[in-house]
Structure formats: C-alpha cells, structure tokens
C-alpha cells in the first residue's frame, strides 16, 4: 500500500502497525511525537494502530528550545 511519511510517498506492506513503521524507518521513538492524518497518536496506541492506504504520517521532532 502507498502511504505518505513527512510529505514523502512510501510503499509499505499491508497490516503494518505504526510501531513497525517507525522501527523500519529507524526512527528513535523517544525523540518524536507522531500524527496520522493530522491527529496526534499517543504512544500507547503505536503498537496496535494499523496503517491504512493513503495515510499521511507526520513525525514531529521534540523541540524545546527557546
């Protein structure tokens, strides 16, 4: 299936969980927040949330500087 990660198209296998996607992409889950289709997904939901074709995944880097 085709999904989109931070504005870039990505081909992913069916039934992929958000957690699996992050692992595949080598993302440090402790340094980000994640949204799907503009809704933030809390990390306790990452293992059970199955990505759907066309999903837009946004990885938000933890930014605390000021």
């Amino acid at each position: 299936m085709e999904i989109n990660v931070n504005g870039r198209p990505l081909t992913a296998v069916a039934d992929l969980s958000l957690q699996q996607l992050l692992q595949q992409q080598g993302v440090n889950g402790k340094a980000i927040a994640v949204a799907i289709n503009d809704d933030v997904v809390h990390r306790e939901q990452w293992p059970t949330l199955t990505l759907q074709p066309g999903d837009r995944v946004t990885l938000v880097t933890v930014v605390a500087g000021g």
């Binding site: 440090n28 402790k30 340094a31 980000i32 927040a33 933030v40 809390h42 990390r43 880097t61 933890v62 930014v63 605390a64 500087g65 000021g66």
Partner: peptide
C-alpha cells in the same frame, strides 16, 4: 490534550539552542 500528552515524560530533547 496537554503538553504531557504530546511529549510524555521520558522523551528526549535534542541539544539546547547553542548546540543545535
């Protein structure tokens, strides 16, 4: 949600302004 919902305790901050 609140700030803690967005970034729960245990998340990692990148370096402070002067380094990053």
């Amino acid at each position: 949600g609140c700030y803690q919902c967005l970034y729960p305790s245990g998340v990692q901050q990148s370096a402070a302004c002067e380094r990053v």
